[in-house]
Design a binder for these strands. Structure first.
Length: 562
DNA sequence: GCCGTTTTCGGCCCGACTGTTTTCAGTCG
């Protein structure tokens, strides 16, 4: 069992114990163990069992729970407490904005045992009767439930990627037997690299149409059923798959049709006619357009750009020369500064690493006070000598406080090579307040990059509302770069605003926000949405070479060094 | 349930913010 699963199990146990009003200190140590396990730099399953209770925060009791999980895959204590809790009540733990204490009241005082009932109770104005609940809380719970329901059956790109690739190879292997020369391709949101996938669309171009159609129901990995124009299946997790089977000669047209959104497809076909087409290139050629990459087929402005042959050369992962905005053990990261740097240098062949640990306000994340900022800078200086020509830039992820100021004095701020300014607290501001707050941070001469601009967590939290145009215009005026936070849960700045930012001359940066070496991998997802947004390498800060970015940081510093 | 011992049980305690209170509890990052 992986650490992540163990950690999640412990978290669930602590939440359920809180729900059942058990000893708060006991709960706290289990919750603490969840954090500790989640941050371990090694896998518990590789550790001798007798060493587990030596880990800080894990004593005999927790060690035995962990060992039980490792050996049996289950935890009796958890199973017992789950049995004593209605399923719907356990599900409520996933609603943002309410925790175990509030759920306990909802369950035990109001007698509500499912999310559906809870939603109904909000509409009937019944929640405000309970102690500690008022109109605002009721409204907030209602909104959170609506958000959660809207996320039902929808998945992050990163969540379906592995499944999709496996399915693709299984289908290919199956096709080799049934129809050797068939063609296969993904379409829809997956091929367009959308951040959220509602449905996985696949097209098969069959040489032997009958053979494929008559046998596909027996394709083992999916329980397919025949629908009107396709074969459909839903996985246990609720993910929908749709497979279209067409004659091989119609494959490219069909592939094209299921790839772009309907407006894009309609507009291009109006120009191109009905085919047949030997490939997608020919469709665009006949339409008098330059080839449009699948990511761009959203009926944004790509057809006009293709007509004028002004499509951007989309950035590729290989264009990245460094990685900015990452964490280390100095704050809440799993790996040390040196491990993070070596990984970038040796595994990823990058030229530089920007380290941006949390600032002092983020106490929960071991944020750096002024003293520790100096300490980290000394370590960076030493590492830079050791690892040259590889370079670690001294950065910080400075909290944007409620009034828009950063949480260090100018004296400290000027000691950094660059500053990522991000919001981590007070996330429920209205648009006017949230925008004003960000504007003030953008106008701060020490701000180099605006971090995850809306604070959203895809499918889980909406993020605070902002006036995008005002924010982007201010970034242009103050030469502030906007982050594309590459964590698949964030992908924030949203790709729909990349084009506007680029038009205004704002640079973007694909930042993984890595908290461990594996986190750098998220840059792949950042690149996918950056391509979708129309980003080219020359407008991407971390595609700058070491020399170029050094110059960029230096010129930014002219703003306050005079 | 963990830790750290004055070695066998007492003390454990992020801070800001919000919404609910009328002094504080719950939630969050």
């Amino acid at each position: 069992m992986e650490n992540k699963t163990i950690a999640r199990t412990l978290r669930l146990l602590s939440q359920l114990m809180e729900l059942h009003n058990e000893n708060p200190f006991k709960i706290k140590s289990i919750a603490n163990a969840y954090f500790k396990v989640d941050k371990l730099p090694f896998a518990l399953k590789d550790k001798p069992v007798e060493d587990i209770d030596k880990i800080e925060g894990i004593g005999k009791g927790l060690a035995s729970k962990i060992i039980e999980l490792l050996q049996t895959g289950e935890l009796k204590e958890l199973n017992d407490i789950i049995r004593q809790t209605p399923e719907g009540v356990v599900e409520m733990l996933a609603i943002k904005g309410i925790g175990p204490k509030k759920i306990s009241i909802i369950w035990n005082t109001l007698g509500i045992e499912s999310i559906g009932e809870l939603y109904y109770a909000c509409n009937e104005n019944r929640l405000i009767e309970a102690k500690g609940f008022g109109l605002k809380t009721q409204e907030e719970i209602k909104n959170a439930i609506e958000f959660k329901l809207a996320a039902n059956g929808r998945f992050l790109y990163a969540q379906v990627e592995g499944f999709a690739e496996t399915l693709s190879s299984q289908l290919s292997a199956w096709l080799v037997k049934v129809d050797h020369d068939a063609l296969l391709g993904f379409g829809g949101q997956y091929r367009r690299c959308c951040e959220i996938i509602d449905e996985l669309e696949i097209v098969i171009g069959a040489e032997n149409l009958d053979a494929v159609i008559n046998n596909i129901i027996s394709f083992g990995p999916l329980s397919l059923i025949q629908a009107e124009d396709s074969f459909i299946a839903t996985t246990e997790a609720g993910f929908r798959i749709k497979i279209y089977v067409v004659e091989k000669s119609a494959f490219y047209l069909e592939w094209f049709k299921i790839t772009g959104n309907s407006e894009h497809v309609e507009k291009v076909l109006k120009l191109a006619g009905q085919g047949p087409f030997i490939n997608e290139n020919e469709i665009y050629k006949k339409a008098g357009l330059a080839f449009i990459e699948p990511e761009l087929r959203e009926d944004f402005d790509e057809i006009e750009l293709a007509k004028a042959d002004k499509l951007p050369t989309l950035i590729k992962y290989e264009d990245l020369k460094g990685s900015l905005h990452n964490h280390s053990t100095w704050s809440d990261g799993v790996h040390t500064l040196e491990q993070m740097a070596l990984y970038c240098k040796e595994q990823l062949n990058l030229q530089y690493l920007g380290i941006c640990d949390h600032s002092k306000t983020a106490v929960y994340a071991k944020g750096l006070n002024e003293q520790r900022v100096f300490g980290q800078h000394q370590e960076i200086d030493a590492l830079n000598e050791k690892l040259a020509p590889f370079k670690i830039f001294k950065g910080i992820e400075s909290d944007i406080l409620s009034d828009g100021s950063l949480d260090y004095s100018d004296e400290i701020l000027k000691t950094f090579d660059f500053v990522v300014a991000s919001v981590h607290s007070n996330l429920r501001m209205d648009e006017a307040k949230a925008t004003a707050r960000l504007l003030k941070a953008i106008e701060n001469p020490y701000t180099t990059i605006l971090g995850h601009p809306t604070g959203r967590l895809l499918l889980s939290r909406a993020g605070y509302p902002i006036d995008y145009k005002k924010i982007i215009d201010a970034c242009a005026a103050n030469k502030v770069v906007i982050e594309i936070n590459a964590n698949p849960l964030r992908l924030d700045l949203d790709w729909r605003w990349h084009r506007y930012a680029l038009e205004k001359g704002v640079l973007l940066s694909v930042n993984p926000d890595a908290h461990r070496t594996e986190g750098f991998n998220d840059m792949h997802y950042g690149i996918l949405v950056a391509r979708k947004g129309g980003l080219s390498a020359d407008k991407c800060l971390n595609a700058f070479s070491l020399e170029e970015i050094t110059e960029y940081f230096d010129s930014k510093k002219q703003n306050y060094h005079g």
